[in-house]
Design a protein around this nucleic acid. Structure first.
Lengths: 211, 211
DNA sequence: AGTGCTATCTTATCAGTGTTAAGATTCTTT
DNA sequence: AAAGAATCTTAACACTGATAAGATAGCACT
């Protein structure tokens, strides 16, 4: 037998580049943010020439799209990892907290997933699929909470509303608009935000919704 | 007296460049999006050399920041332009609709205001001031709705919650995640979303908030 | 074994970007 | 009219995404 693996002709190619590029891109994403992520920096980190990536991804957008898809898969997984909580309130609380925790733990990735860096034309099928899956997971949670079929209009509109609320909360915190009080835990923050929402409903928002 | 205005030495400077650059930037913003807005394109549109802008704005970020500040001023103005509605529900409805309408009418600007293109270091004082003002307007609305002092903790947490919800709704629609049903008006859409929220609260979210 | 094909990776190379430096022009003040 | 400051220009640099053409490696087939 020859050498186990005739690695590294000194300078030249590596092997399974695609995943390595993705991993490096993910690192750089958290380091420099979604808008300043360059293919060249990714390639250099892997130790490969500037244009090698183009044999695995059509362009920069496609790499970013794959990264975002990965994010949606992880978000979906985080949402599905829910305990069989007893009360509807508990289920709801767990879901919102899981979503919020993901966004807080991966702010740059979250911004990529929902930000303007990826234009509608850049949305590759893998991304759309993963996003639909994650949203489906959210539907399932709401269906449990409401104790209604997942495809009912009630569940759909409730899922839309809760997604909007949670996304808004996460996005504003990540962007730095809402300063997370130092020392306060995420749980406490989310609960306070939910209280505010409840208070609002008591004050007459319900009439709007009913009308 | 000489000529009224010795304009345009054929090729050379113009006069009050700063506002013209801002206006051109705003046009280009809606044409190419926040991430692909280039200073060179802005300069070319005004008919001035590529580097002229640097005598009025420190860098690209500062121009974008000024643009975002302009956006926050307009948003604040839109929110303040509210009728003396009778019921709390009506006030709330008007506020949410005004916010949503602004975001829908200026999607690219809205993405710039809340997106990752402007990093926290780029936030010039004018932007922060305008943003605080806009948020203050929102506080005033909520204070009316709740009939409580603007600086009460109730108003603060309710404002946070309602801003999160409305921002989330607008952001998801602009990003294309939530497909606005064709033919449906924005009013109808917002009302449906509010219904979903109400339904959710009925199902036990209130317990979470109360806990 | 060798031969050729294909995928992969490389080195030019181009157009476009933000930004700085240095020179040209106009405005303003005296 | 002259001096100085403000404004605008051209020139240049480093960096970016992207394409084209050549080099290398792995693989299939004889």
């Amino acid at each position: 037998m020859s050498q186990a693996k005739p690695r590294k002709r000194d300078t030249y190619h590596v092997g399974n580049l695609a995943p390595q590029l993705l991993a490096a891109a993910r690192q750089l994403l958290v380091e420099v943010g979604p808008s300043k992520l360059s293919l060249r920096a990714v390639s250099e980190r892997v130790g490969v020439s500037s244009t090698a990536a183009y044999h695995h991804y059509a362009n920069r957008s496609e790499l970013l799209g794959e990264l975002a898809a990965q994010g949606f898969r992880e978000l979906g997984a985080a949402l599905s990892r829910r305990a069989a909580s007893a009360s509807a309130a508990q289920k709801m609380r767990d879901g919102v907290l899981a979503y919020f925790a993901f966004a807080r733990a991966n702010p740059a990735l979250y911004q990529l997933m929902f930000g303007p860096e990826l234009t509608p034309e850049d949305l590759i099928p893998a991304l759309l699929h993963a996003r639909t899956e994650a949203f489906g997971e959210l539907h399932r949670i709401i269906a449990e909470v409401l104790a209604k079929p997942v495809d009912s209009t009630e569940v759909r509109s409730a899922a839309l509303a809760s997604w909007s609320y949670t996304h808004g909360l996460a996005a504003l915190v990540i962007h730095g608009v809402l300063p997370l009080p130092t020392g306060a835990s995420d749980e406490r923050f989310v609960e306070k935000a939910l209280q505010g929402l409840s208070r609002l409903l008591d004050a007459g928002l319900r009439d709007v919704a009913a009308g």
